[in-house]
Structure formats: C-alpha cells, structure tokens
Lab assay of single mutants.
Amino acid sequence: MQIFVKTATGKTITLEVEPSDTIENVKAKIQDKEGIPPDQQRLAFAGKQLEDGRTLSDYNIQKESTLHLALR
C-alpha cells in the first residue's frame, strides 16, 4: 500500500509499505529515499509519536495515510 510522509520542510515522500511493516522498517525506507538516518527520525500520526517496534497496523495506519516526520 502507499503512504505519504510529510517532512518538516513541507516535502511529501511517497512510500510503498505493508500494514505489517514496523515503524523501524518505514524509517529505513525513508533513509533509502532521503538519506536521513533512522535514529534522527521521529514519526507521528494523528498526533501520536510512533514507536520503532510497533507496526503500521498497530496504529491503524491505512493506505494513503500521511505520517509526519520530524528530525531530532
């Protein structure tokens, strides 16, 4: 499925993911596309910060959802 990640600079990244993917996997995909190390990424959805060990389906993130990326 496709999801979107909006960066602090307003850029939107499109990612191909599975509901079973962990947040860690998603951060690795962002690193592949943007070169941002996962340990510098903070992802949020619906106002909640997402934890590495959880999956997209844990957070009820569905196709075409938009996550927000902040850098630490």
Rank of each mutant, 00 (worst) to 15 (best):
R54D: 06
E16S: 09
I13D: 01
T14A: 11
T12I: 15
E51G: 04
G47E: 07
I23K: 01
K6Q: 11
P19I: 08
L67I: 15
Q2R: 08
T14K: 07
G10T: 05
A28I: 10
V5D: 00
P19G: 08
T9I: 09
R72G: 15
A70V: 11
E34H: 06
K29D: 04
V17S: 03
E24I: 14
A70K: 08
A46S: 10
G35E: 05
L71Y: 09
V5E: 00
V5M: 03
F4Q: 05
K6P: 01
R72Y: 15
N60L: 06
A44I: 10
R72N: 11
Q2H: 14
L56D: 00
T12N: 10
K11T: 11
R54Y: 13
L71T: 10
L69M: 13
P38H: 15
S20Y: 10
T55Q: 13
T9Y: 10
E16Y: 13
K48H: 09
D21L: 14
V5Y: 03
I61Y: 01
E18S: 14
E64M: 07
G47F: 05
D52M: 05
R42M: 12
K29I: 10
T12G: 04
P19Y: 15
I23N: 01
R54C: 05
G47D: 09
E16D: 10
Q2T: 09
D21R: 02
Q62D: 14
E18Q: 09
T7M: 14
T7R: 07
T22P: 11
D58T: 06
D52A: 11
P38F: 11
D58C: 03
E18V: 13
P38M: 13
E16I: 14
F45N: 03
N25Y: 10
T9H: 15
I3K: 00
S57A: 12
D32N: 08
L69A: 02
I36L: 12
L71C: 05
G53D: 12
V17M: 14
M1N: 03
L56I: 10
I3G: 00
F4W: 06
K29C: 03
G47R: 04
E16T: 09
A46V: 06
V5N: 00
Y59V: 02
E51L: 14
E34L: 14
H68Y: 07
Q62I: 07
E16V: 08
G47N: 07
Q40G: 05
I3C: 02
R42H: 10
Q31D: 06
F4S: 05
P37C: 05
N25I: 09
T22E: 04
V26D: 00
T55K: 13
L67P: 01
K29P: 00
L56Y: 01
K11F: 15
L43E: 00
L50N: 00
K33Y: 08
D32I: 12
P37M: 10
I36K: 03
V26S: 01
P19S: 09
G10H: 10
D32A: 08
E64C: 05
V17D: 00
K48I: 12
R72H: 06
T9K: 10
P38R: 10
I13S: 02
E16F: 11
I36C: 04
I3F: 01
P37I: 07
G47Y: 05
T7H: 13
D52G: 14
R54S: 07
Q41I: 15
T12R: 15
I36N: 03
E24Y: 13
S65I: 04
S20W: 10
G35P: 03
T7N: 09
K63W: 10
K29E: 04
A46K: 08
D58N: 09
T12C: 04
A28H: 08
K6E: 09
I61T: 02
E16C: 04
Q41N: 02
D21C: 04
T66W: 12
T22N: 08
T66D: 03
I36V: 06
M1C: 03
G47H: 11
G53Q: 13
L69K: 00
E34M: 13
L43H: 01
K48A: 15
K48G: 07
G53V: 12
I13W: 12
D39M: 14
A28C: 04
F4A: 04
L43A: 01
I61F: 02
L69H: 02
S65W: 04
L71Q: 12
D58V: 04
K63C: 04
L69N: 01
T66A: 04
I30M: 03
S20T: 08
T55F: 15
L69S: 02
A70T: 09
L69I: 05
